[in-house]
Every structure is written in structure tokens, then in C-alpha cells.
């Protein structure tokens, strides 16, 4: 989930209410949202709603963009031409997802440059999952299966989020995500049915990606300060714990089907709840990664900043060229 609110301080609410809103307009807005109406860019909205959305959508966009790095790392080393074409197509989709989301955030009055600056300066967060390394080819399988699987779990309800441009971006994204998860699972399935060494690779990737994937859904509900307001505003449609449980319930049988072990000794089907019970998540690790202490946080940001800086001359040259053509066309 690329969209859990990622604040490094779990106690402080992320949104400090600014000037009090006009109570009549606020009540009308709340009523519309409660009735599942969509809010569109020119509609009146409370400042806190606008700010929360800008933060959430831009974090989501940053996650799509940074998310290209761990996988991009494997494009040249994919084991076959087929796998290479598929991975390239997936990474290309993620770039597109970033673009849809940046564009949706821009309808709220922020700019692309502002958002990118916030990412590069470390003020904006992105999903902690992308600060883990991709050690073997099996990690590409695990990412597609688990990370994209978790993203789908989170994003499907957001197709009905209250802000129109965000909801519409989510519809496009969800349509494209399905192949991401299936290609990942296919890689895992193939490795799990391969040689003993290939199966070990698949198991080790699952071992390393399972817990970080569960953390993608964000802190537990009782530690998620903005959850209630976001739920009321339909910026979030299900709680972190609800989506996490759903993910576990559908993913465990998928692991069993290819004879891989979910690395959680406490994992057990609970007949009464109709769900799996699962072990304690290491939230200290999560908050450390949010604070930028993830294994690859620095490397990821350096790669982003480097790409941005080294691409500057291209952006400038394209503008200069367009300006020159405009002047020439005006003179004719």
C-alpha cells in the first residue's frame, strides 16, 4: 500500500488544522462525502482534506517511482528474453502509475516540481518496502506476488475514494496491476517447481519479503492517528488492519499451493474468525525504515536525485527548443 500515511512520529497527528472552516460549507461537504458522492477539483473542500490528499497521493506517486528502482536493477539480468520483456513492461507501468498520481495531486494545487523537491529533500515519504534489497531473481517474483498483491489489496477500495481524480487514477492503476501480480507469482511457481536450489531461492525471497509486505499496510489501527478522519472522508476505505488481514487470508493458500512456507510460526487458521491468526509484526523495524534507516534508503534517494540532476539538461534543452520554435513560428 502505497498510501498508508507514513509519518515517522506515530504519536503526532499529521494534519494540523489551520483556520477553522466555515461550518455550513463544512457540514455540506461532510454530508456529500458521507453519501459517497465524489469531490471534484473545483468543488469546495476543507483545507485539511486538500492537504491530507496532497500528502497521500504524492506519497503514493513517489512509491510508484521509487518502486521502479529495486526491479529495474534486474532488467538486464532477467533469465530469459520473455522475463526481460515482462519486467520491462511492468517497470514501465509503475512509471505510468507515478505519472497518473502526480497529475491527480496537481489538480489540488501543488506542482510536480514541488512534489519532487519534497521527495528528494527527504520531507516526503514513500513506501518503506522499496528500501529493501533485491538479492536474487526470486525477489522479482516475490515483489510481484507480494508487493503488487498488497498494493492491489489496498488500491481496489481506493477506486471508490471520495476525490474524483484520485479514484479515476486508481481505476486505471488497478486494471494494470493484475498482470504485475500474476507475472510475479508465475516466477515463484516456476522456481518452486524447479531444482532444489531454485526452490531454496524462492523460499528465501518469501522469507525476506513476507514481513515487510505486511508492514506495507501501515501501523496497526490503534496507532494510526489520522485513520478515523481519513475513513470519514473516504480517503481511506478500509483500516490498515482490515486490509492486512485480507491480504494474509488470500496469500497464505497461494504459498501453500506452491509448497512454500510462510515464515511465521504463529500463523494458524482460526475457524471462528474465518481468518488466519498471525505473529507479532516488528513495528520498531517499520518506524526505523520510515525514518530512513532502511537498508537501502540512501542508495534509493541518491539514485533518484542523480537521475533528476543528470536529466536536467534534457528538460532545459527541450524547453529551449520549444521556445525557439515558438518565436520562429510567430515571426513567420
Amino acid at each position: 500500500m502505497y498510501t498508508t500515511e507514513l509519518d515517522d512520529n506515530k504519536k503526532k497527528p499529521a494534519t494540523v488544522p489551520s483556520a477553522p472552516e466555515d461550518p455550513v460549507r463544512l457540514a455540506a461537504f461532510e454530508a456529500r462525502v458521507a453519501a459517497d458522492d465524489f469531490i471534484e477539483p473545483k468543488d469546495w473542500m476543507p483545507e485539511a482534506y486538500r492537504k491530507t490528499l496532497i500528502r497521500q497521493i504524492s506519497q503514493h506517486a513517489h512509491s510508484e517511482i521509487v518502486g521502479m528502482l529495486p526491479e529495474g536493477n534486474w532488467i538486464t539480468r532477467a533469465p530469459s528474453l520473455r522475463r526481460k520483456a515482462v519486467l520491462l513492461a511492468k517497470v514501465q507501468d509503475e512509471g505510468g502509475h507515478g505519472l497518473y498520481l502526480y497529475a491527480a495531486a496537481e489538480t489540488l494545487g501543488t506542482s510536480r516540481d514541488e512534489m519532487i523537491e519534497a521527495l528528494h529533500s527527504g520531507r516526503a515519504k514513500y513506501s518503506t518496502i522499496f528500501n529493501y534489497p533485491t538479492l536474487t531473481w526470486a525477489d522479482i517474483g516475490a515483489i510481484g506476488w507480494l508487493v503488487d498483491g498488497a498494493a492491489i489489496m489496498n488500491q481496489v477500495p481506493l477506486q471508490r475514494t471520495s476525490y474524483g481524480p484520485y479514484a479515476r487514477a486508481m481505476v486505471r492503476i488497478c486494471k494494470e496491476e493484475s498482470f504485475h501480480q500474476r507475472q510475479g507469482y508465475e516466477i515463484m511457481m516456476t522456481l518452486a517447481a524447479g531444482t532444489a536450489e531454485q526452490k531454496r531461492m524462492a523460499q528465501s525471497a518469501l522469507d525476506r519479503w513476507w514481513w515487510p509486505s505486511l508492514m506495507m499496510f501501515g501501523p496497526p489501527d490503534d496507532n494510526s492517528p489520522n485513520s478515523a478522519q481519513s475513513m470519514r472522508w473516504r480517503i481511506k476505505r478500509e483500516t490498515n488492519d482490515q486490509i492486512r488481514q485480507k491480504f494474509i487470508d488470500v496469500t497464505v493458500p497461494q504459498a501453500e499451493a506452491i509448497d512454500l512456507q510462510v515464515p511465521d510460526p504463529a500463523l494458524k487458521w482460526n475457524e471462528t474468525r474465518g481468518s488466519y491468526d498471525f505473529g507479532e509484526i516488528d513495528w520498531e523495524e517499520f518506524y526505523a525504515v520510515v525514518r530512513g534507516e532502511g537498508p537501502l534508503a540512501k542508495e534509493r534517494m541518491n539514485a533518484r536525485v542523480k537521475a533528476w540532476e543528470e536529466g536536467a539538461w534534457v528538460r532545459e534543452a527541450a524547453m529551449a527548443h520549444a521556445d525557439k520554435r515558438r518565436v520562429r513560428a510567430a515571426a513567420e
Binding site: 498482470f179 508465475e186 511457481m189 488470500v250 499451493a257
Partner: peptide, 19 residues
């Protein structure tokens, strides 16, 4: 010719659900 951009390109056995 980029059929692999579609989920149906990947064959996953029917008994595996929710994917």
C-alpha cells in the same frame, strides 16, 4: 505484440485463487 501486458498471458492453475 505485447500480450504480456495483459493478465491473461500468465497461466495460473485454477485451484489457486484470488490472483
Amino acid at each position: 505484440d505485447k500480450v504480456y501486458r495483459h493478465p491473461t498471458f500468465y497461466s495460473i492453475p485454477d485451484h489457486i485463487k484470488n490472483i
